Amino acid sequence: MSQEQPPKIEFPCPDYPIKVVGKNSDDFETFVVEVMRVHVPDLDVSRITIRDSSKGTYRSIRMFITATGEEQLKSLHEELIASDRVHIVI
């Protein structure tokens, strides 16, 4: 049996979705955006969507970036996940 390989991402990749989930707090969005801007200086904040969990314990922030390469995505993921405020980055 041959297994299908996941599609390769071609860079630059516009509209690359990123979702960050963490504990809900007043400044969680600010924290995430500040980290994102280090790696994505041209982040379009008008395309950010925020959702709180049903009980309000967690908050998810979804945004779209122009991914420039694997190194950018890896660095971004590592910096976000290193924070004890972030539970998952998708």
Results as ranks from 00 to 15, higher is better:
M1Y: 08
S2F: 14
S2E: 12
E4H: 04
Q5D: 06
Q5F: 08
E10N: 13
E10F: 11
F11W: 15
P14T: 03
K19M: 07
V20I: 15
K23E: 13
S25A: 05
S25D: 01
D26V: 11
D26C: 02
D26Q: 13
D26P: 06
D27Q: 04
E29Y: 00
F31A: 05
F31V: 06
F31M: 13
V33K: 14
M36V: 02
V40S: 01
V40L: 10
V40R: 04
P41S: 09
D42W: 04
V45M: 01
V45N: 00
R47T: 05
T49M: 03
T49I: 10
T49R: 11
R51F: 10
D52L: 15
D52K: 15
G56R: 05
T57S: 10
T57N: 06
T57H: 07
Y58G: 02
S60E: 12
S60Y: 08
I61S: 01
R62E: 15
M63Q: 08
T66Q: 14
T68R: 09
G69Y: 07
G69W: 12
E70D: 15
E70S: 13
E71V: 09
Q72W: 09
L76H: 05
L80H: 06
A82Y: 07
S83A: 14
S83M: 14
S83I: 12
D84M: 06
H87N: 12
I90W: 02
I90K: 11
